[in-house]
Write a protein that binds this DNA or RNA. Sequence first.
DNA 1: TATGAATGAGGCTTCATTCAT
DNA 2: TATGAATGAAGCCTCATTCAT
Lengths: 231, 231, 231, 231
Amino acid sequence: MAPSQNEKAPSQNEQKKSPPLRSDARRNRDLLVAAARELFAEQGLNVPLDEIAKRAGVGNATLYRRFPARGDLVEAVFHEDLTSVMASGEEARLARDAWGALTAYLEGVCALLARDRGVGDLMTTGIEGAPTLDAIHAHNHATVSELMRRAAEAGELRTDVVAEDLLFALSALGTSLPAVEATRPGSWRRPLALLLDGFRAEAQRPLPERPLTPAETDRVYREMGGEPPAV
Amino acid sequence: MAPSQNEKAPSQNEQKKSPPLRSDARRNRDLLVAAARELFAEQGLNVPLDEIAKRAGVGNATLYRRFPARGDLVEAVFHEDLTSVMASGEEARLARDAWGALTAYLEGVCALLARDRGVGDLMTTGIEGAPTLDAIHAHNHATVSELMRRAAEAGELRTDVVAEDLLFALSALGTSLPAVEATRPGSWRRPLALLLDGFRAEAQRPLPERPLTPAETDRVYREMGGEPPAV
Amino acid sequence: MAPSQNEKAPSQNEQKKSPPLRSDARRNRDLLVAAARELFAEQGLNVPLDEIAKRAGVGNATLYRRFPARGDLVEAVFHEDLTSVMASGEEARLARDAWGALTAYLEGVCALLARDRGVGDLMTTGIEGAPTLDAIHAHNHATVSELMRRAAEAGELRTDVVAEDLLFALSALGTSLPAVEATRPGSWRRPLALLLDGFRAEAQRPLPERPLTPAETDRVYREMGGEPPAV
Amino acid sequence: MAPSQNEKAPSQNEQKKSPPLRSDARRNRDLLVAAARELFAEQGLNVPLDEIAKRAGVGNATLYRRFPARGDLVEAVFHEDLTSVMASGEEARLARDAWGALTAYLEGVCALLARDRGVGDLMTTGIEGAPTLDAIHAHNHATVSELMRRAAEAGELRTDVVAEDLLFALSALGTSLPAVEATRPGSWRRPLALLLDGFRAEAQRPLPERPLTPAETDRVYREMGGEPPAV
DNA sequence: TATGAATGAGGCTTCATTCAT
DNA sequence: TATGAATGAAGCCTCATTCAT
C-alpha cells in the first residue's frame, strides 16, 4: 500500500520525529489508509470519517489519533498516486515533443481523475495542512508551465495562454470525469481532446480577459473549497 | 423581485389551480424566495432550509408549508432566471450568424453561472420534481442543438461534435465560474473562450471516442448528483 | 339525546345560544363532520386535524372555530351513531327475553365497533368535554345493567357479575375488532360469543376479586386514555 | 437489573460476536435499558427515545449508537421478562393438570401484562427486527396450543376453540390490564377468570364463525400495529 | 364572521470531535 | 499508548395551536 521506499524512511509520512510505529499500529494505519483510498475514490473526500474507520475495521478514535485532521489522511492516501504523477511529469519534461508529452501527461492525470473522485476533489477543494500535496501541486504546475512554454515555441500551442488557463480548465473538467468513466469507460478522452484543441495554435482567436495570476488562482481555489489548492 | 410580467400572470408560478395568495402570505412567500435566491447563489442548492427561513425572518414551518420539498423552492427561485434564458435562446435561434448567436447565448448562460452557484448545481445535481426546470433544460438542449447544426453547416463549427459534447463541457465549467467571478469579475469569459475555440472548425483534430448519447448523458448527471439533470 | 325536534332546532348541537348557522357555514360544518366521520372510522380518533380539514376542503381554522376542541368534533360525529345505539338499547329493554336482547344489543354495538375505529377509541380513550357522549355512556350502562339484572333473574346470566364486568370486557375487545373485521368480515362474532359464554349461568365458577365499582371503572378509563370514559 | 445468571453468560444479551463492553459503556447501556424498561412499562413502547435518553442521563446519540432501532432497545428490555415466560411455559407443559397449568401460565402472563404496558404493546403492535421476541412468541403459541389440546382431551376445555381464539382474547384484554392494575392491584384476575370461563367445556354453546387461521391472525396484528406480532 | 396562514416546539437521525479507559 | 464510546449540535419534518385579514 505504502510504497516500499516508505519502509526505509517512514518518517516522511509521519513527520520527522515519530518513532517507527509498533507493528499492530502500523497495521491499523495501513488498514485505515486502504479504506480511505477506496472510499475517497468512490465517494470523494467528504466521506464520513466513521465510515472509513468502519470499513477499516477499527474504531474511529484510532483514525483520529493517527490522522488528527482529515487532510492528514488525504495526504497519506494520495501521496503515492501523486508521486507517480510527479514521476511522469519528470519524464514528460525530458521528451523532445513538448506538446505530445504534455498531452500524454494530461492523459495520465485525467485517467487518474476519472477513476478516483478524490483526486478531482483535491484539485478544487484543497486540503488544509497537506505540505506534500502542496509540493506535488507546485511540481505539477512547473511541469505544465515548462511544457507549455516549449510547445508554444514549437508553434503547437497558442501563445496567449499560461499554465493557469490550462490547469483551471483541467480542474473544472476533473470533477466530472468519474461520472463519465462510470457511464462509459474511456470516454473521458473525448472532452479532454476538445479541451486541448482549444489550446492549439491553429485555433487562435484573441482571448478576452487577461489570465488569472497565480495568486488569483489560489484565491479561486480557496473560494471553491475553503482551503488552499492541492493539485 | 418578480418582474412586471409576472404580475400579469402570477398563476404561472403558483400552478394552475391555486387561488391568489393573501397579501401577507404572498409577502412571506416572496421573502422566502428572496432569501433562498441569495443563499442558493452564495452557497449552492444544499444550503440548510432552516437558514433560509431564518434569513427570511419566518419560521421553518412556514417554509415547509409553502414549499414541501426543496425542489419546489428551487423551482420558484430559478423559474425567472431560467425563463429569461429560454427567451434569449429563442432570440438566438432567430439570428443569421449561428455561431455568433451560439457564442452570445452561452455567454449569457455563463454570466448566470458565474454569479449564482445554484445554477451550476442545477446543471449537475438535478432536482427531483421540478417539471418547469426540466422543460427549460429541454429547451436549452434544443437551442444549442439547432445553433450547432447551423454553425456546422456554415463551416464555423467542427462537424464531429454534438450538443452533448458542448453541454457537458459547459456544465463542467459552470461549477467553477462563481469562484473566478468572485476573484475577478468578468474573468469567466476567458475559460469560456478557450472552451469554444476547441469547438471551432479550424481546430479540428480527429476526436477519440464517440460522443455520449443523450441517454448516457442523463446517466452521467445522475451519477454526479443522484437525480435527473435540470439545465 | 338528540330528539327529532333537533332537526328543526339545530342550536342544541352548537350549544344553547348559537343562532342558526348561515347556509354556507352550515355546509362547511357538515363537510367537516363528514370528513371526520370517515377519518375517525378509518384511522381512529387521533387522526391529524389538518387532514380532516383537507379532506373536507376547508381551512383548518374553520375546523377550529367550529369545533374548538377535538372532543367537540368527536361529539358531533358520533352523536348520530350512538343515538341509534341508545334507541336500540331502549328497544332491547322492552324485550321479553332479557339475555337474548342483551346479546342482540351487544352484537349491534360490536358491529359498530368493528367498522369504526373511532368507536373503539371512544370506549377506551375518553374525550374531554363531550356531555352528549357521557349521557350516551350512562344510558348504555343503564341498559346493560337492566338487562343483566333480568337475565340473572331468569337464570341465564351468572349472578356474580355486574355491568362493569361486561362493559370492561367489551371495551377491551372493542379496540381489536376493526382489525378482525378488516381481515375477515363478520368474524368479530366469534370472540364476542366467547366473551358472552363466560358470562352464562352454567359456566359459573366462583370469580376471584370483586368487580370494579363504577368509580373505579372511571378511573380505569382515565388511566387508559387520560380522560373520562365515553361509552 | 440483570440477574446474576446473566453475569455468567452476558453473551446472550449482546449477541454472539460482540466483545464484552467496556465498563462505562456497559454502565450507560444498562442505564439506557433500565430507563427504557421503566418508561416502556409506564407509557408503552411508543415513548419518545429522547425521553429515554434523558431519564438515563445520557445523550440521545449514545442511545442511538447502542440501539440503532427502537426494536433493538425493546428486545434488550424484554428479553429477560419474556425468557422467564418461556421458562414458565416449559414448566407448565410438564404439569399433569393441563387446564390448571394453562390457567396458571396465563395468570403469569397477565401479571406481566398488568404491570407493564410495554408487554401489551408487544402483543398487538409487533416490533420490526426482534428475532428473539419472535422466538418467544412462537414458544408461547406452542405452549398454549399444547395445553389447550390436552385440556380439551381431559374434557375441561371446549373442543371448538383453537389457540388463536385464546391468544386473541388475551391480547385484547392485555392492553387494558395496566389500567385496572393501577386502579386496584390484582383486580386483573377477574376479567381473566371471566375470559377463561368462556373457554370451559360446560359453557359450550355452538360458536359462530370459524376461528381465525394463524395467517389471518398475523394479518390482524399487522392491521393493528403495522408490523408482525411479537407475543 | 369566516378563513387560511404563521407559529414553535418536539421527534428522529447523523456526524465530527472530545473524552475515558 | 491504543482504543472505542460519549457528546452535542444541527438537519429535516410534523403537528396542534394561535394569529391576522
